[in-house]
Design a protein around this nucleic acid. Structure first.
Lengths: 221, 221
DNA sequence: CGCCAGAGTGACGAAATCGTCAGCGCTACA
DNA sequence: TGTAGCGCTGACGATTTCGTCACTCTGGCG
């Protein structure tokens, strides 16, 4: 939980972390399949873990699912940070993050489904995941004079809701060009945030860093 | 189900409709309380209906909850139509609908909670409820030259996601001025849709019709 | 007035799910 | 190498939930 940096100390700790991660991965898989009402036994079987182990890690199903969503958010947030590390303009950081998140819905549908399932409730009041990053970027862009918005929280609200809704759209219309749709909406958002139209257009045409899909060493890997 | 117009024909039909409505109302109440995992028995007790009656109307819990959301959407959509009936400008119709929906989250938190729970999945591909109305308004506004958007569906996506996210915000921050926040976001959306800034501002300051809160004769009344 | 169709009812057996617990195997450490 | 500690395990009793079914009651109709 608080094991932010560094590898687990002992072999036993690592074993424990692996079991926990397996449970989280299984839960995410079931969420992606839309089956949030699975029996605990079924989860442990999917995770190839003994039934009794479950309660060594979680007090119940709700806690597991919460951890699963948190894990998905953390991993995606970390990925965004990694890919936008070298950008100076906060407006561009925001735009790249939004565009990358749009791509995510096609590239990692399972992760996307997890976010769409419970993402709305986590849109606010969470100190972890992608929301604080977006808030940070918007605030920085306002400070830098790149964005002109009446209320940061309202801007964040528009952005958050639009991300989720866009994910749903891309999921429901598999034939739609996800990059085109995402970039179009990002451009619209930038204009809404006060960026001049030509600049918004140009920013959204810049090339995106290609995320490598190696399994990363996140909480649940 | 298809009993759109006219009262139920016989007394028996009316009785049946009342039982069904009671179940739907109970389900909505539980959803509003965040308890989507209630036992069927508990639902029937809350509805003051015999356990056995449940299966006369629904094949299972999922079907009931689906009907409950659909009912909430239908009733809100009908209310919007009623309140915006005399408007000529489709841009204003959209704006008023959006503003009224924003007010809804505070005025009818229970209905709002229902929409927030499963609204995202119904954001798309539903032929009933508020989404088709929004689509219709946006298309009409584009036709009339009031909106300038590259893609109607993308515009709809932004609007839908923002509504839900705004509802979540208003729910999480009870102290925030809901009218102010809603009108601000509506104004931003209108600008995003190509309405000149001064017009957008003016439209969102126009007075709103006051919805009367009499229980209406909808599907579940 | 009497009969019938259809909705309502709640108790009951079947089935699923829960959470525990006593034992086991592995790992760290002396 | 011995041993103590910790996590893993899966079978089991308890509990909850499900869906049915035989029956009742109400209202439409001849």
């Amino acid at each position: 939980m608080a094991d932010t940096a560094g590898v687990a100390s002992s072999r036993l700790d690592r074993r424990k972390a692996r079991t926990r991660a397996a449970l989280i991965r299984a839960a995410q898989a079931f969420m992606a399949a839309g089956r949030s009402d699975v029996a605990i036994l079924e989860i442990t079987q999917a995770a190839d873990v003994g039934m009794g182990s479950f309660y060594n890690h979680f007090s119940g199903k709700a806690e597991l699912f919460h951890a699963a969503v948190e894990d998905a958010l953390d991993r995606h947030g970390a990925l965004l940070d990694e890919l936008t590390l070298d950008l100076d303009d906060p407006a561009e950081t925001f735009a790249q993050s939004f565009r990358l998140t749009g791509r995510l819905h096609r590239r990692h549908p399972e992760l996307s489904k997890v976010l769409l399932n419970r993402g709305l409730a986590l849109t606010r009041s969470e100190e972890r995941g992608v929301v604080p990053r977006a808030r940070r970027d918007i605030q920085a862009a306002v400070q830098a004079g790149r964005f002109t918005v009446a209320d940061t929280e309202l801007a964040l609200t528009v952005a958050a809701g639009t991300t989720l809704s866009l994910g749903q759209l891309l999921h429901d219309q598999p034939d739609r060009d996800d990059a085109q749709a995402t970039d179009q909406i990002t451009e619209d958002l930038l204009r809404l945030f006060g960026v001049p139209a030509d600049q918004a257009r140009e920013i959204c045409r810049r090339p995106l860093p290609e995320p490598d899909d190696r399994p990363r060493g996140g909480t649940a890997a």
